[in-house]
Every structure is written in structure tokens, then in C-alpha cells.
Design a protein around this nucleic acid. Structure first.
Lengths: 135, 135
DNA sequence: TTGCGTGCAAAGGTTTTGCATGGCA
DNA sequence: TGCCATGCAAAACCTTTGCACGCAA
């Protein structure tokens, strides 16, 4: 049903190798262009990988383009914190927070999708920086 | 410093009257066009209202355009649930969940912005519908 | 009268699509 | 060979911007 093409492999490898960072479609296209992969194919593969759950998509509050990141299996079981100031992503593994999901499911009848949910706010560094500002 | 124009008032009123729903810039433009307000002005007013904190902006995971909603004061103190299936927004007021913010701040040194954070997942109706599907 | 807000049209940027070709199975 | 994936270019889409005019203060 799905062919395994050179380009698709290159794109997936690139995202996997940069698993630590958030890449825009443009970033990825830049990274694979030298190997003869077009931007159109990048978009089409991103859509496929997204459906397969192999990557995750983040949509910044401000700014233009969506970011993508390799979806490690372990990421399905925890939440993410995204700093609105420095745009860093933090992985949050914590027993207390696992209870959130079951609490909301039981008391509010809503089944949270951990891998899609991102908490926005200020990370430690940026909060301190802001405090220091002469505002 | 800021003039009070007819168009600005019309736009704000429209958003306020539809406080229960998520409106795209286009929805709003459609709603006020008959009263002689241009889409450009809608965008410019949305930006202003956003900065003033009078409305909130939601960026859907899927789909194109951003959604806006009248920001009721009470919304600053609770979280929101957004169904990825039917796109409904639920307001979540619950003591237990208020603890989330302080827990994450104390234990993970991250200051969550409630008004920006949205939990994505499946609401009751859609979850049941999916269960019923012959998948 | 001053200068911010508006409207139109055009630009800007991201993502999608049509169609012919290329390449996996 | 059959058919999905690719590439190019163009389109579609949302949002922003330049500029002249109108209107609130």
C-alpha cells in the first residue's frame, strides 16, 4: 500500500536525527534539498508521518509556520511544557500529573490526548529574566 | 490615544454577542460586512483586542485559520478542553485542577499560563461515537 | 486641525493541488 | 506492468502592509 522511497527515508531520517529540536517544514526542506528532495514531498511526507503518529506537530501561538518533531514512543505517556518566551519544549514526566488524565476522564468525561496537549507558560529562565526587566 | 470608531465598536459587539463560540477572522468579517466593516479592519481590531486581553486566540491543531473568542474575566482562572473531533470548547472549572498550576510551578519550575493552555482530546459525545464505529 | 483608523488592493508567507513523470513492488 | 510517490509550477489560503482618505477628538 505504501511504497518505501528514497526521499521518504531521507526525510524521516532527518527528522529522527534532529529529534531534540523543533523543525519547520522549511527547515526540513533545507536539510534534505542537497539530497534532491523537493519541498512538496516534505509536506506530503509530513502529513503521512503525522497520521502514522511517527512525528508530532506543534503550532506556535505567535509566528507563522508549524513545527514538527520526531515522536519518541515515550512521549505518548507524558505532557509537554512549552515556554512562550524562548520556545523551548520540556518533557514532563511526573506521577502526579498522570492523575490529571484520569481525573478529567472520570469527573469531566473528557479523554485527553497527551501527545497533543501542550502547556504554555514561562520556563524558569525566562520567568527570572522577566522579573529582572525594568518594566 | 485610541479613537473610538464605529467599526471597532461593531466588531467588539459581534465578538461579545458570540461569546459562546469560536470565531475565525473570516466569520467575524462575514458578520460585520453588512454594516460596512472591511476584513482588514477586523484583523487590525483583533490584534488590538488581543493585546488588550479582551479576546483570546486559539490556534487549532488542524485546519487553517485562528479562532477568536470573547475573553470573559473568569476564563483566566480555569483551563479549557477542546475536542479534536467536533472542535467544541469546554470550560473546566475544578478545584483539583487548580492544583496543577501550583504543582508544576513548585516541582517543575514552570509557570503555566492558564488562558493559553488548552487540553486536546475527545469529548464524551465524540468518544462514544468513535466507539460505535465499525473500525 | 491633528493624526489615528479605515478601506482597497497588493504583497507576503505557508501549505495544497494538478498533472506529467519517475520508480518501487 | 500497475500504481503510488515525486517534482514543478501554479493555485489557494490566511494574514499583513502601503497609501490615501475619512473621521474622532
Amino acid at each position: 500500500m505504501a511504497y518505501k522511497t528514497r526521499q521518504a527515508q531521507i526525510i524521516f531520517d532527518y527528522i529522527k536525527q534532529n529529534a531534540h529540536s523543533h523543525l519547520t517544514a522549511d527547515d526540513i526542506a533545507d536539510g534534505v534539498r542537497a539530497q534532491g528532495v523537493s519541498k512538496t514531498t516534505v509536506y506530503r511526507q509530513l502529513e503521512r508521518l503525522l497520521n502514522e503518529g511517527k512525528i508530532r506537530k506543534y503550532i506556535p501561538q505567535e509566528g507563522k509556520s508549524a513545527c514538527f518533531q520526531y515522536a519518541e514512543e515515550t512521549c505518548h505517556s507524558h505532557f509537554h511544557l512549552k515556554c512562550t518566551e524562548c520556545n523551548c519544549l520540556f518533557h514532563l514526566e511526573c506521577e502526579y500529573l498522570d492523575e490529571i488524565k484520569s481525573h478529567i476522564l472520570e469527573h469531566h468525561l473528557f479523554d485527553i490526548d497527551n501527545s497533543r496537549t501542550v502547556f504554555y507558560g514561562l520556563c524558569r529562565n525566562c520567568a527570572e529574566k522577566k522579573k529582572g526587566d525594568t518594566k
